[in-house]
Amino acid sequence: MAGPNEKKAPVSALMLAALALPGLDAAAQSLPETSTLGIGMLHYQDEQPELRRVKVNSPSVYLSMPLAGAWLVEGGAVLDHLSGATPRYHTAVSGASRMDEKRKAGDVRVTRYFGHATLGLGAAVSNENDYRSRAYSASASLSSEDRNTVGSLGFGVSNDTISPVNQRVVGERRHTTEFMVGIEQVLGKRDVVKADYTHTRGRGYYSDPYKQVDNRPRERDTDALLLRWNHALDHAAALRLHYRYFRDSFGIRAHAVGGEYERPLAGGWMVTPSLRLYSQSAADFYFDPVYDPLFGEPYPPGYNFASPKPSTADQRMAAFGAATFGLKLAREIGGGWTAYIKAEQYRQMSSWRWTGSGSPGLARFDARSWQVGAVRTW
């Protein structure tokens, strides 16, 4: 089985990734004049040498409607079908645990527009056989008179319940609070820059019950800084660049840089190639693949079963680098509909870490995904 930290993604983020089209602006200060309906299908498959790992199929739907000249109501739903296998520790193929399960998730958000300001409230729910999550959020924004400067604030809380089928734990809880502050600045007719800072405070169960030797601290604080620059080019083309810095109390430090180039083509097509590069350090309690003289793999030397210290053999807590290549095609097909298809290829290797040598002994990790769908506005 995949653990609760391996297969979870924020509901809104998942749906926006599946349904977003070039030109949609979630931070707009004016109430949209049109309604939007989006339907999509996401397929994901990851693998390592000699092991096809997790496969996910996710149909989703999204609806956004302006009401009464001042309100925007948004909602979405997604159904994930996950199957496959994940290593119990590091990237060892032997003993990989199997899974086949479904997740149902949905969210709703209501935003009130006040000319130069907005207030929003949202709620999200996610259910599956071993994991349940409830989340609530509030946000506000304020723009200058000329609308060239926009400040935003956000606050969210989530409560998760973890009850794995192997019954290693039953009814474990995790509570998370998140605070975000951001500012967006128009620099001219062609350029917009934005900076967002997010702080997250989590308390509760963070271990992966399906991994061997996985005992993580019950407190996790994170900080993330996201910088974005959007630049309009000639012929309706656009360049979007971003940089993200992340750190947490587990000891992980991560950097990500990326960009996408959006360009219209003949026949009403829009093409968007993208590239993202990523690097992270290992968690303080991550241990490399080793063999204990007494217990054998995967226990680190001197592991104390009676009083285990924080430790993990989860490759996602290791030091590594990664690259993601993507290509998206979209086309207006009439009747207010725009269809799109997007493919991405991800590769993760220890040797690709930007500084240092990365964690040794890990197998290469690859993932492929494609999304297909359509969006209608009216």
Results as ranks from 00 to 15, higher is better:
Ala105Pro: 00
His81Val: 07
Tyr89Ser: 07
Pro264His: 04
Ser311Gly: 14
Arg376Thr: 03
Asp234Ser: 15
Val375Ile: 13
Trp354Ile: 08
Trp378Asp: 13
Ser357Tyr: 05
Ser143Ile: 02
Ser30Phe: 03
Val54Met: 14
Leu239Glu: 03
Trp378Lys: 10
Trp378Val: 08
Trp352Gly: 08
Asp214Val: 04
Gly40Trp: 00
Pro300Gln: 05
Val165Phe: 03
Val150Asn: 03
Gln185Phe: 02
Gly188Glu: 07
Phe295Ser: 10
Val181Glu: 09
Tyr245Phe: 11
Leu51Arg: 00
Ala367Ser: 15
Gln167Ala: 09
Lys194His: 12
Arg103Gly: 03
Leu37Gln: 05
Pro308Ile: 03
Lys309Gln: 15
Trp229Asn: 11
Phe305Leu: 11
Thr36Ala: 11
Val213Glu: 02
Val157Arg: 13
Thr312Trp: 02
Pro273Phe: 07
Ser30Trp: 09
Ala138Arg: 11
Lys55Ile: 10
Thr338Met: 09
Ala238Ile: 14
Leu16Thr: 10
Ser97Tyr: 04
Trp337Gly: 01
Trp352Glu: 08
Ser158Ile: 11
Asp223Tyr: 15
Tyr205Gln: 02
Gly171Thr: 06
Ser311Trp: 02
Gly95Met: 02
Glu219Trp: 12
Arg201Glu: 15
Ile162Met: 01
Gly106Leu: 04
Asp234Ile: 14
Ala232Trp: 00
Pro10Lys: 13
Tyr243Asn: 09
Gly302Asn: 04
Ala17Gln: 12
His175Thr: 15
Asn148Met: 06
Thr34Leu: 12
Leu277Gly: 05
Asp223Leu: 15
Arg218Trp: 08
Met317Ser: 14
Ser58Phe: 01
Met317Gln: 12
Pro87Gln: 02
Leu63Lys: 07
Ala70Glu: 14
Glu128Asp: 12
Ser94Trp: 07
Ala195Thr: 11
Gly358His: 02
Ala313Pro: 01
